[in-house]
Design a protein around this nucleic acid. Structure first.
Lengths: 213, 213
DNA sequence: ACCCATTGGAGAGCGGCGCTATCCATGATT
DNA sequence: AATCATGGATAGCGCCGCTCTCCAATGGGT
């Protein structure tokens, strides 16, 4: 299929697809002649994934390129590509924007991971740093973030990870990598939305005023 | 305290504080003379909260204004202010950027909420719409999002909400509203970071290569 | 074979956002 | 009185995600 058809079938504006091609989010089409190129079904799949990462997952375009590049990196075995791809995802909290982390937050994070039985924390893992940054922010505002309150979050995260990995295991080869990226990123809004809905429910049941609400 | 001191104690650049004042994120200082104003401790608290929302929680400045305005809205009782404040938070998925929601995703979301026992879903609730948008994206990519897999997410969200509300209940008056906003927003990165760490752990234990890793 | 609309490609431009730098009149400080 | 900092307003910057414009090559209809 040609660019115009790829655009129609995906719903992504043609100029945007050109931009994604330029940025390396999509592999170039198969050159048919000096001025034409053909695109296949897997371009369509890739485009959908890229679009979802960017628009739903809020992944920056440059980051999406790195993630997708890792998925395709034939020089690595599957498990390494998986690690590279997900660690290329943008950090939950961008380091350069948050305040420098506090040592007490670092220690608290370490205690939490220990209590969860998650030994061997890589202290430079972007997710670990994001965790510490978030705890730093909570502490600096004077809000509680004792290990006791964080523990449920960790245990639940652990359950979800197991469930997610079971889901991923149903895919094979490169599609498993794509699934890992997609499920990691796209279940985040699911989780946050559900948490907010649950908050609203809980607040409503606790503090609802008697008058018609 | 004057602007310069507020800047020093908060670590926020002076020009940025001016900008926040202009945008209405902070109430104006108490005017001492035609060219001077004083700021109190609660300005410092507010500034910290605003900064954390913006930098850690990625809340847009204009949205943070609405949220903080709701916290201060003396014309409403506390429970109403709470509802207004959290519903002013930016949606997890921005409507205008994602594809229009699919009806099957809508139905799936409804089934999920029913299965969770969360009756009376407000179908125009921003969090509900975000949930449906995320499910739409997963479906359109061909990834599974059966109620069976979503259910654990919902149940865990419910547990977290209870735990969060217990924490909030320790605060009184306006500080409870601030706590609600702060805990809603700032525990999101905590949760996402822990999930990603758990993913990495789980993937590692399942797919680790024997050679030194 | 001829002609013209279409294609893929490249660069510049745009609009939104979160600041940041500049300027200015006033009044505090010494 | 002289100087300098302050608060306030305006304009500009840098990044990002597109979007617009242009262009040579070409394939398709006749």
């Amino acid at each position: 299929m040609r660019l115009a058809e790829l655009s129609e079938r995906s719903g992504v504006p043609l100029a945007t697809i050109k931009y994604y091609l330029r940025e390396g989010l999509l592999p170039p089409g198969e050159r048919i002649s000096a001025t034409q190129a053909r695109y296949g079904e897997e371009h369509l799949r890739r485009l959908g994934l890229a679009r979802a990462l960017i628009q739903v997952g809020r992944v920056p375009v440059a980051t999406a390129r790195e993630v997708l590049r890792a998925v395709d990196d034939e020089s690595l075995d599957l498990s390494r590509r998986l690690g590279t791809a997900v660690s290329s995802l943008p950090p939950v909290v961008r380091e350069e924007k948050a305040e420098p982390v506090s040592t007490s937050a670092q220690q608290r994070a370490r205690e939490l991971l220990t209590a969860l039985g998650w030994e061997d924390p890589h202290p430079n893992d972007p997710s670990h740093l994001s965790l510490v940054s978030a705890i730093t922010a909570l502490e600096s505002l004077g809000y509680p973030c004792e290990v006791a309150h964080l523990l449920p979050y960790g245990r639940l995260a652990s359950e979800l990870a197991t469930s997610d990995m079971d889901l991923m295991a149903e895919f094979e080869g490169t599609t498993r990598l794509e699934a890992a990226v997609a499920l990691t990123v796209l279940y985040e809004p699911v989780l946050l939305s559900l948490r907010r809905l649950a908050h609203a429910r809980e607040a409503d049941s606790r503090y609802r005023e008697p008058e018609g609400g």
